[in-house]
Write a protein that binds this DNA or RNA. Structure first.
Lengths: 123, 123
DNA sequence: ATAATATATGAACAGTTATTCATATGTTGA
DNA sequence: TCAACATATGAATAACTGTTCATATATTAT
């Protein structure tokens, strides 16, 4: 079999070369490094058990920090640190009412991701 | 104002006590520790830039390791390690064809989560 | 059987992360 | 202004994670 050498990606001659077109096509409309970074940062905010539990609390409606602390069962400081991470990732928002801060889910994407994640592990 | 002491959660007398009912109701149908753990592990698998880029590659269809390596631009070893993480999280599956292993997205939940994540950061 | 190719794996190191502790900030009522 | 409460923040530490390097396994062709 007369093998034709591929100058651009010689590797694929070895690999069979079948996917050269696919690879080239995809690499053009591939997600950018920047997008991939932000997406991974978003999921990183969802990658901790305490934060997941906080978010599932908030699915029931807005809640102040001390109530979250009560439900999740970790220290005030830990909750506060984690809420900051969630806020920075755009997953929660808050409003002040007197001495208390009421946190809530930022938008419907968050609920969707949590629901989909829960579905996925239930299989 | 005559304050009534709450024996169960004295804390909430200070916090206003408004949310005692909410907290109690939610804590019953709260996500379990086990579920929260698995959900967080799932998102942890999505929390790395390299793995996100791999998954977005695979949205275009199944692909062998060397093609992924080409598109993502990291070493073979790194791709392989990350594919293992993705496989363990149930995010990808694979089939063998000759010397090559063809990886693909495990199910529609994965595409949903990626799409929702990408939407979320685009705002 | 041997060589070449495709992929996986284990160990090690550098970088990152979650919690804890102590303390600071902001709000309310007296 | 002061005390009490609700929450945030900074530093420190222990645990975890991703990459690299070297090597192992599996498949195919000769």
């Amino acid at each position: 079999m007369e093998e034709e050498k591929c100058l651009e990606c010689p590797h694929h001659v070895e690999c069979g070369g079948k996917n050269i077109e696919l690879v080239k096509r995809l690499s053009e409309k591939m997600i950018t490094e920047e997008e991939a970074y932000y997406v991974s940062e978003l999921f990183k905010a969802l990658s901790d058990m305490t934060r997941v539990r906080i978010l599932f609390c908030l699915l029931g409606g807005e809640m102040c920090v001390c109530d979250i602390q009560e439900l999740v069962g970790v220290t005030q400081s830990a909750v506060s640190h984690q809420l900051r991470t969630l806020k920075q990732a755009g997953l929660v928002k808050y409003r002040r009412e007197g001495k208390s801060l009421y946190y809530s889910i930022a938008d419907s994407h968050v609920s969707t991701m949590l629901a989909t994640g829960l579905e996925h592990i239930s299989e």
